[in-house]
Nucleic acid binder design. Structure first.
Length: 422
DNA sequence: TCTGGGGTCCTAGGACCC
DNA sequence: TCTGGGGTCCTAGGACCC
């Protein structure tokens, strides 16, 4: 049996752990640049109707009327809280698949069937006791079914946040309860197509002929179909896989016209992604740079472009990659537009031990020692204390907006939570 | 009239996830 | 005024190889 443990309204719950004074009040967490709502606690969800991903400015008035508390996203905090949850889960099973920041699969094959329910409650209660985070637990024979069980645990009040799908009767009941659009792996496009052929529930979908599923939804859809029928078709991935692409593309705090300032933002992002690249002991063999105007705007002239540069020799050297990114940016930049976003993406990622030298290029003097020193200084003194001069110093001119970010309680000495004594 | 067969690699685009 | 960011997997089609 496989369990899926999922934290409820994860980002909002993380904020509430450190702000018990806000208990009972509606709380929402905003996206980067404070643009959209990306998480809401149950009080906020209960309020009228707060659509996720709704631009905040459109409903701000309404939210203020209801006394909603806003937080900008604080990924440092959420990442740390996530690690704590995972460490607890590892004490409950030797095999844990970390699926996302707030979800993990657990192999419970060694737990006797009659103990599954008690064990699930124990997992849930232990996490709450040690972190203050509420979670739901779904258990079933396949990953897709445990996702479904988790959904039932969350939505059906009487379940007390735990749901086990074990018998054939339970499986069919669960499938009939679940609308096709809510099945894990079936998105908007596919659920429209499935509805069109008359299947409305997950149960109906399992009765659609495999040939149709295969043709319309490829092998990915076939796996979902099999798993819903109780036949395992997805791998349980215990080892963290190295990333195959590492990228970043964030909106600017304000719109930008000039190449020199966009260049600085671009260089800064290259610094960020190469740090991740080095942390997984890899090198990139290509880098992609993209720029785009604000596609929401009807008034601005629109332009977007991107370019991929193959490197002569794969590298993880920030300084070399900034140089390449800058050249690439110059090729796609056009003056006369107002830009909203620049992105960099590292591609063709290979382990650093596999790098093959280029026959026609003199080996460059190794800067690996320099980047190591830079990395260790930044770990010690804080993010981006040391960086390439190409990054510049005008970060305030393009940096994204985070007006309501909470303190980084768990990772910065200066921002520790203070408990006042009388 | 009729024009091989078996591959690899790369890219763009679509669909999905949190 | 203001609209998120970071990923994965799969397929088709083009270009190339022997």
């Amino acid at each position: 049996m496989i369990a899926l443990i999922d934290c409820n309204s994860f980002y909002a719950s993380c904020e509430l752990v450190f702000r018990p004074d806000l208990a009972g009040r509606p709380v929402v967490v905003l996206s980067n640049n404070d643009g959209c709502i990306i998480a809401a606690n149950k009080e906020a969800k209960a309020l009228t109707h707060i659509p996720m991903f709704e631009p905040v400015f459109k409903i701000k008035k309404q939210l203020l009327e209801h006394n909603v508390v806003f937080f900008s996203s604080n990924y440092t905090l959420y990442g740390e809280m996530s690690k704590r949850v995972i460490n607890i889960l590892k004490t409950f099973s030797p095999r844990v698949e970390i699926y996302s920041i707030d979800e993990s699969f657990l192999d419970l094959s060694t737990i006797p069937e009659e103990s599954l329910e008690a064990y699930s409650h124990l997992i849930k209660d232990t996490i709450f006791k040690h972190t203050g985070l509420p979670v739901g637990v779904g258990v079933a024979k396949t990953k897709v079914l445990s996702k479904l069980a988790n959904r039932i645990a969350k939505k059906v009040e009487t379940n007390n946040h735990v749901c086990i799908i074990n018998t054939e009767k339970q499986r069919i009941e669960a499938l009939k309860w679940c609308a096709i659009k809510d099945v894990w792996g079936v998105g908007r496009k596919h659920s429209e197509r499935i509805l069109k052929i008359g299947a409305a529930s997950a149960y109906d979908f399992t009765k659609v002929p495999l040939a149709w599923v295969r043709k319309e939804m490829t092998v990915v859809g076939e796996r979902t179909w099999r798993e819903l029928r109780g036949e395992p078709a997805m791998e349980f991935v215990v080892n963290v896989k190295k990333k195959k692409a590492i990228g970043t593309a964030k909106s600017f705090g304000k719109k930008l016209k000039n190449l020199d300032i966009i260049e600085e933002a671009c260089s800064y992002y290259v610094g960020e992604v190469t740090e991740v690249l080095r942390a997984q002991q890899s090198c990139a063999s290509a880098i992609n740079v993209s720029i785009t105007t604000n596609y929401h705007s009807n008034r601005d002239k629109q332009y977007s472009n991107s370019i991929t540069v193959q490197l002569n020799t794969p590298t993880n050297d920030t300084f070399l990659l900034i140089k390449e990114a800058k050249k690439a940016l110059h090729l796609i930049y056009r003056s006369g537009y107002v830009y909203k976003k620049v992105g960099v993406n590292l591609l063709g990622i290979i382990p650093e031990d596999y790098v093959q030298a280029n026959l026609f290029e003199a080996p460059s003097a190794s800067k690996s020692k320099l980047t190591k020193v830079v990395d260790s200084l930044n770990i010690k003194y804080g993010k981006s204390k040391v960086s390439s001069a190409l990054v510049g110093t005008r970060i305030k001119e393009w940096e994204l907006i985070k007006e309501e970010r909470s303190p980084r309680y768990t990772t910065q000495w200066k921002e520790l939570l203070i408990l006042k004594s009388k």
